[in-house]
């Protein structure tokens, strides 16, 4: 079964970068949906994370600024020290308000905003990490009709975040890396 999806959004923290580096190059091009990555990152002015991920994948990437356009087939990474929101399906908006779950960017904040804008045309994927960020966001995605996927906690370098989501967000799928890739390549 193929689902119509306009955005795939990844959330992750400690231990998630390696998973992304493994998954992203295996996604078949051209990609019919936009990809957004929200990972907890140090508050810094630089773009080391963007540069690293750009090196590892052929997916076109755009550096996110306030009111950047969101386009299918393109990869976006939430910048440090801002929450990343969706003004509508084609426009990103940034927000500098209080940290959520000790984090800015916060996964919950982006997942919730995406859920309201993309509704059932959204897939949210939560990866390895060490805090509870992301679970509430997955609940929001589910409530609005989107699909929720959590990395199998025993395959995560840090299992707390996916485990917390499995226990509290009743995700549609609990996948290892390979299954995530297969799902993205064959079901969307």
């Amino acid at each position: 079964m193929r689902i119509r999806c306009e955005l795939v959004i990844f959330g992750g923290s400690a231990g998630s970068l390696q998973v992304l580096i493994n998954i992203l190059p295996q996604i078949k091009l051209p990609i019919p949906f936009a990809i957004v990555i929200v990972v907890h990152r140090k508050n810094s002015y630089d773009t080391v994370l963007e540069d690293l991920i750009a090196l590892k994948t052929l997916i076109p990437m755009e550096y996110v600024e306030d009111k950047s356009k969101l386009q299918p087939g393109v990869l976006y990474i939430a910048p440090s020290d801002y929450h990343m929101l969706f003004e509508d399906k084609n426009n990103i908006a940034l927000d500098g308000s209080e940290k959520v779950n000790y984090s800015r960017p916060s996964i919950d904040v982006s997942f919730e905003s995406a859920a309201f804008v993309f509704r059932e045309q959204l897939v949210g994927i939560l990866l390895s990490g060490a805090n509870a960020d992301g679970t509430f966001g997955l609940q929001m995605i589910q409530e609005k009709g989107g699909i929720t996927i959590v990395q199998k906690p025993e395959t995560a370098e840090v299992s707390y975040m996916p485990q917390f989501a499995v226990l509290n967000a009743n995700p549609d799928f609990i996948f290892n890396e390979e299954e995530i890739v297969t799902f993205l390549n064959s079901n969307i």
């Binding site: 929101l85 003004e87 908006a93 927000d95 905003s113 309201f116 804008v117």
Partner: peptide
């Protein structure tokens, strides 16, 4: 105002 952040506030 940006609707996305206004809604959050």
């Amino acid at each position: 105002y940006s609707k996305a952040s206004l809604k959050r506030r």
